[in-house]
Amino acid sequence: MKSWADISWTRAVVSENLKIAESAYLLKFPRTFDFQAGQVVALGTDPDLAPRLYSIASGEQDPFVDILFTEKSGGSLTPMLSRLKPGDSLMVSKPFGTFTKIQPGSVLVAAGTGLAPFMSVLKSGKARGATVIHGASYPEFFYFDEYLEETLKEKYLRCCSRVAGGDWFHGRVTAFIEQWKGLDPGRKHYLCGSAEMVVQTRDRLISRGVPFKNIDAEIFF
């Protein structure tokens, strides 16, 4: 997204900005609009700086909008976002995007902050029977793991690429998919994360017999 000039936006006042892991933050501001789980907003701190897109991580009826983001060193916006304090103001666009058609009983595969739209879907009660597969480099990046364990039980599967030993699969999401016994090609699979993760996971799913029509993805480009 290039400029704030031609999008409709409002100012929100930050309620909370929690550091939840190294370089990872959960930013909250009061919800003043309706949205559909899976949608994104453009955020900014300064009209002269190009807006960036973020998936909403909270439920459709929650009083606050949650944004889960990681600070990119040398990034133009995230270092500013991570410095926001309660009471600071933030530019927020109208919600948009159509990664909203997630069907009950689906497999939701995320890496890192790619979990955000799926959290929104789960918290909105729209993903009955879903399985969540979350990939992270270190266990501290298993965001919202307590909520997910409690809500999904055995349908919450974790992959940790750098640390072995916990109750997770040791390896990347792609390696997990390659050997996953629970894979059912008939289920819908939704992927969210970096381009690399989405493309590689999609390739693995297809090579294991999942029709591409059962794969939908949101890329954090």
Partner: peptide, 16 residues
């Protein structure tokens, strides 16, 4: 078609 394009091109989810 929206659903088809989403399978082919993930950008459809952001900019239909």
């Amino acid at each position: 078609f929206d659903a088809e394009r989403r399978n082919l091109m993930p950008v459809q989810n952001v900019y239909p």
